[in-house]
Design a protein around this nucleic acid. Structure first.
Lengths: 204, 204
DNA sequence: GAATATACATACATAAGTGCATGATTATAA
DNA sequence: TTATAATCATGCACTTATGTATGTATATTC
């Protein structure tokens, strides 16, 4: 029960992260104690404080596990610039919705971010990560919109910045409301359709 | 300092609600103790437990103070059915954004709902109120969309339900993202434009 | 004007959570 | 093989929050 193999250690670390992810997304961050996380992972609190500094560090590690969609996008966006940027934007947005709906881990983290943690002061690492990630992502997609305008796919009268923020808000809002009551409407079906409407509305 | 007038009592009650509203929206619900609320209101914890059962009751009273936009809408929607429903929908959505931006109390409560409280289990009164309010509101606006279709303002091919949920998600998403970093973009200006785009996209 | 209820302060009892210090045991390196 | 370091358990000290019980002085009622 002590000084296990290095692989064993990584396994307990993973188990701790799994336990935290499940408990945080179900009961909320502040409503979940380190004790509960340890119990769910089948260890004691000592193990947690060995692997993580504190609860905040645990959360940060949690978020770090999933590949940020931003990082994935970065490369593909470059290619898409000479392809059809507008279709690329739609495809990316829809893919994001699909990931939230289909990948449990992504859904859990989205749930934690949107509903199960309190965004306090500016120095909250969770909030910082969220905001900075969002802003980066916005800048990337803004380029796509600009490219669409250059290619004549979009009227020059549309403000790319407003277009992106609207799109992001639409997607965020869909995920937010869907997570609030997942049985109320189908995320991907409704979301995809709304994205189409929104993009269509930009072009005229 | 004891057994003050009935009006005095209502005043301390109001002060407690003000203090709670400010602290909750700034520091989060769980991060705020009853002690802090009492101190900010200039009384002791005893006063709180005299006026409210517990923290949850305090929050519920807080939410009850603002007039639900749904209730306001209810009447006006009836009239609007024979007017221009689509314009009515836009106007209502924009008014909501404006209220969040301009009325501090509405903004505070929106901030608490969207960012400063954890939505735990199904019996959480806050979540229940939020969800049921949203669903009612969705049904009302759905009627407006149906009316718009009947009047030929909207193609019969659009699904009213999807249209509403999309609109609500867009508005919620805007408020969500704006509250996350209010300096990043102007809520009303960008929001209004995005609403126009979205509704435009529905019509074709 | 006596009786009572109200509005709050004060104090306490309890619980729970955090972080750390220390202990135990074994993998790993020398 | 010995020394070291890693992995985790255990126990403690400290803090903080909650709810309630009780006290007290005044408003209100009759």
């Amino acid at each position: 029960m002590v000084r296990r193999t290095k692989e064993d250690a990584m396994e307990t670390r993973a188990k701790l992260l799994d336990a935290a992810e499940a408990l945080f997304s179900e009961n909320g961050v502040t409503q979940t104690s380190m004790m509960q996380v340890a119990e769910k992972a089948g260890v004691t609190r000592g193990a947690i404080y060995h692997h993580f500094d504190n609860k905040m560090d645990l959360i940060e590690s949690l978020m770090g596990r999933i590949s940020l969609p931003i990082d994935e996008m970065r490369e593909q966006i470059a290619e898409s610039l000479e392809f059809d940027p507008l279709e690329e934007i739609k495809a990316r947005s829809k893919e994001f919705l699909a990931r939230v709906q289909n990948e449990p881990q992504v859904r859990s983290i989205a749930s934690i971010l949107l509903h199960k943690c309190e965004y306090i002061d500016e120095v909250n690492p969770i909030k910082l990560r969220h905001v900075s990630g969002r802003n980066e992502c916005i800048c990337e997609v803004e380029k796509l919109f600009e490219s669409a305008i250059e290619k004549g796919k979009l009227s020059p009268s549309v403000n790319p910045r407003i277009a992106v923020i609207g799109l992001f808000s639409l997607v965020d809002g869909f995920i937010y409301n869907w997570l609030l009551a997942p049985d109320y409407f189908p995320l991907v079906e409704y979301g995809n359709q709304a994205i189409e409407s929104y993009i269509n509305g930009l072009t005229r």
